[in-house]
């Protein structure tokens, strides 16, 4: 376990190193003069020079790279050029809570939808429950979330008037419901199929037959004996799909005009703010790497049979 932990940590650190390097070079590989594209061709020379100094464009590449690492390591992700004294992290700190709120709510929606349906489908394979859930999963995967969002808005906010129209000054839980359903639906499809096939595999094993033979009630066998062991692949899918959730949040935030990382990123793109864009990309990638690391380490906790090495 100790050696595995060390190796896993090391490989995550390596990926972080690669991500930082890739983002650094991708941003600097931009054709043309970034200063001209930010300020426009007609800008005053003094403004151009100030921005050039702020973005450190006149430094040698190796020094830029080292300074870039400095910004990442001290957690500021660099200082903003258009706002004195503010760092990219200050912006991120404001944007992270709404996005995390959305991601966690979507995860909840996905699990509430997927786990019961997946378990139910696995206990009655090939029944109408099973086929019905497969159909729902298929729809969930094929409907793009930037379309589902507007459709839900038309249905619930305009036609049924049941939920507030987001974008207006609505806060609180109800403004979270539609975005979370929009983002959670796609994930729930994948999760449902995974839960079902993993459950089917476990339900076919000998210890389940033993548990049933002991006369334990069926619900207890399914939930306590089978489901716990079927969780391992499900947790993997959850970890891997968390990234899809983060990148899906960019779109859902735009659909529902919600604040968050995606909105920050898109505003950064609109305003050609390199610092903000690279900060958002780095932060999302770091989060994803971290979640995958945690997922890997969780295996052992969910299923003690797993021995590393």
């Amino acid at each position: 376990m100790g050696r595995f932990l060390l190796r896993r940590l090391f490989s995550s650190l390596f990926v972080v190193f690669g991500v930082v390097t890739l983002v650094f070079f991708a941003v600097r590989a931009a054709p043309g003069d970034p200063v001209a594209s930010i300020l426009g061709e007609q800008a005053l020379e003094i403004d151009k020079q100030a921005l050039r100094d702020c973005l450190r464009l006149d430094e040698p590449m190796a020094k830029q790279y080292a300074l870039f690492w400095g910004d990442v390591v001290d957690g500021t992700f660099g200082e903003l050029c258009d706002e004195r004294g503010a760092t990219v992290m200050d912006k991120l700190v404001d944007a992270i809570p709404p996005t995390m709120e959305l991601a966690l709510a979507s995860l909840l929606v996905a699990m509430l939808l997927a786990l019961p349906l997946g378990i139910l489908a696995s206990t009655r394979p090939y029944s109408w429950v099973d086929n019905g859930s497969a159909f729902v999963a298929l729809l969930g995967i094929s409907i793009p979330n930037f379309w589902l969002g507007p459709m839900l808005l038309i249905l619930f906010s305009l036609t049924l008037k049941a939920l507030p129209n987001p974008g207006a000054a609505v806060t609180g839980l109800s403004a979270l419901i539609l975005p979370a359903i929009t983002l959670g639906t796609a994930l729930s499809g994948k999760l449902m199929r995974m839960t079902r096939s993993s459950m089917l595999e476990v339900l076919g094993q000998d210890y389940i037959r033993t548990a049933k033979a002991k006369g334990l009630p069926n619900v207890r066998v399914v939930i306590k004996h089978a489901f716990r062991n079927a969780m391992v692949p499900v947790v993997t899918v959850l970890g891997l799909q968390f990234g899809a959730l983060l990148s899906g949040a960019i779109i859902v935030e735009k659909v529902f005009a919600r604040p968050g990382l995606g909105t920050l990123l898109l505003d950064g793109i609109e305003g050609r703010n390199y610092m903000i864009v690279q900060g958002c990309v780095l932060f999302i990638a770091f989060t994803y790497v971290l979640v995958n690391l945690i997922t890997d380490l969780l295996y052992g906790a969910v299923d003690p049979r797993i021995r590393y090495e």
């Binding site: 890739l22 043309g32 990638a285």
Partner: peptide, 24 residues
Amino acid sequence: MRLTEILMAFPGILLAILIIFVTQ
């Protein structure tokens, strides 16, 4: 394989967004 791991650390269309932003 390390290179693929780095590329896969960018979920979904995130890296594509960055590339298109950069190429303008």
